[in-house]
């Protein structure tokens, strides 16, 4: 095979304005990060709440959370994305619909759809991790807290959650990494995130291998940075005297 390797490709003009290919990657990376962070924030807040709900004695609340998890975990991510992007907007109020479909920059409306989709999808997974983390704590902890007269919210706030939080850091790290990987579905509805930009570069320049190598390197670096960061967090909150493994 006669392939012409050219690593300088990223500094060459794309032929559109005075952009070089590297600019495309930077812009793509920007979207990917903005998407993943926003989706992760949604997933943490909603998933955390649902996870706590699943451990509550109230059957209605825990049932509601269980239903959520079943729904969002059993429908494939892509199907959910198409629902958020193609179906949900049709059910918005008239004015919002016009705004979302016509006035809004298509890139932004795609961004909103994917962020919601990925955030709510990941929330179901975060919920399960949080629930497992809370249930893994010895029963005696809740007992001890209740025995001194704590209300249920206080039991969670001061005793259960600080411990569960430490237990769930490793599994949540891998969920966070999944958010980055899953964010590439955005390219399917036209959001020009990292993968979409790599594809576009490959098509424009015919330097397929360089384009995807760079994209791979960027994803890899992102992942490593997150792992390093979460490892640092884990170390910072480690409980003196306890073994590292599993936190208890």
């Amino acid at each position: 095979m006669n392939y012409n390797w050219d690593w300088n490709i990223f500094f060459k003009s794309t032929g559109i304005g005075d952009e070089i290919y590297l600019d495309w990657f930077i812009s793509g990376l920007g979207w990917t990060i903005a998407l993943a962070l926003a989706a992760w924030a949604i997933a943490l807040v909603i998933g955390g709440l649902l996870g706590v709900m699943r451990t509550l004695p109230n059957k209605w609340l825990s049932g509601l959370a269980t239903a959520y998890v079943e729904l969002f975990r059993n429908v494939p991510l892509l199907v959910q994305l198409f629902i958020w992007y193609f179906v949900v907007p049709d059910y918005l109020p008239e004015q919002t619909q016009v705004w979302f479909k016509q006035e809004l920059n298509p890139m932004v409306s795609a961004y909103i759809s994917v962020t919601l989709c990925l955030g709510l999808f990941t929330a179901a997974r975060v919920c399960e991790q949080v629930r497992t983390g809370i249930q893994a704590l010895p029963k005696g902890q809740a007992n001890a807290a209740m025995a001194v007269g704590f209300t249920l919210p206080q039991v969670y706030r001061h005793v259960l959650l600080p411990q569960a939080f430490r237990v769930v850091i490793p599994p949540l790290t891998s969920e966070f990494l999944n958010v980055f990987k899953n964010s590439s579905v955005a390219s399917l509805i036209g959001l020009m995130e990292l993968l979409a930009q790599a594809k576009q570069t490959a098509e424009f320049s015919a330097n397929i291998f360089e384009a995807f190598t760079l994209a791979t390197l960027i994803y890899f670096t992102l992942n490593m940075s997150i792992m390093k960061f979460m490892g640092w967090v884990e170390k910072r909150v480690r409980i003196p005297g306890l073994m590292v493994e599993g936190g208890k």
């Binding site: 001890a144 807290a145 001194v148 704590f150 411990q163």
Partner: peptide
Amino acid sequence: LNALRAEVGFVFQHFNLYPH
């Protein structure tokens, strides 16, 4: 109940100190 429990100390077989 919470007010009552505040007046009754309980010591468990397995201590149940808060490890964190």
